[in-house]
Write a protein that binds this DNA or RNA. Structure first.
Length: 205
DNA sequence: AGCACGATTAACT
DNA sequence: GTTAATCGTGCTC
């Protein structure tokens, strides 16, 4: 049974680890020319404050990181490796820089459009990486710093399915190869997978 | 002004 | 397992 209730600012104005965990199972929606492109978030990572040496805010407030210092519930979309856009959602109170990186999604709406943007790729690989998500959902820097809690927002989140703790795994974050400990290994990545998850998704028709 | 590198991906051996 | 692609950002000179 699908719920269409949108996540409000209160959801994002909380500790980042809690937001990252609870985003698992919610639906990300990109309203593109009025058409819904959507899917269930399966993997997310927390980036928390200037002390976190894996977080971009370790460099302090710059033009790029400014949005992380702003209100929770805004997008932080940045460009990396010269070719990929990555989508984050800003968390915690205004003034404290933190965000959640959306790393993996199970595509559920406008799959024909997603398929065409991921030509030759099997469905399970359409959106199983942060750069793949933005490619499939057509998200880029023009959508940086938008309020996902505003009525009619182009990007927003909806209550989706309930994912029990028994099928949520916590691991170190991915790709922080030159980040010092303890930040490199701290388990701030949340993901869900497996047969039990597939059953939950299959029942949400 | 120059430089090293990255919250990645796809295509290799 | 390794590596190229490709460019904005932040740091150093």
């Amino acid at each position: 049974m699908q719920s269409s209730k949108s996540l409000t600012r209160d959801f994002f104005a909380r500790p980042t680890l809690q937001v990252a965990r609870e985003l698992i199972g919610t639906r990300l929606v990109h309203l593109e020319n009025g058409r819904r492109i959507a899917g269930y978030i399966l993997e997310a990572e927390a980036y928390i404050g200037e002390a976190d040496q894996g977080c971009h805010a370790r460099a302090g407030r710059t033009k790029r990181t400014a949005v992380m210092y702003g209100q929770p519930g805004f997008t932080y979309v940045y460009f990396t490796y010269g070719m990929h856009w990555l989508l984050n959602l800003v968390t915690e109170e205004e003034g404290f820089p933190a965000a959640v990186l959306i790393r993996s999604i199970w595509s559920s709406e406008s799959v024909d459009l997603i398929s065409s943007r991921r030509e030759g790729v099997p469905p399970a690989r359409w959106t199983d990486g942060p750069g793949k998500i933005t490619q499939a959902f057509n998200i880029d820097g023009s959508l940086n710093g938008i309020d996902v809690c505003a009525p009619g927002a182009e990007i927003f989140l909806e209550e989706g399915v309930s994912i029990p703790d028994s099928i949520v795994t916590k691991t170190p974050r991915v790709g922080l190869n030159s980040v010092p400990e303890p930040w490199k290994s701290i388990p701030w990545r949340f993901l869900t997978q497996g047969a039990a998850l597939q059953e939950i998704l299959a029942e949400d028709k």
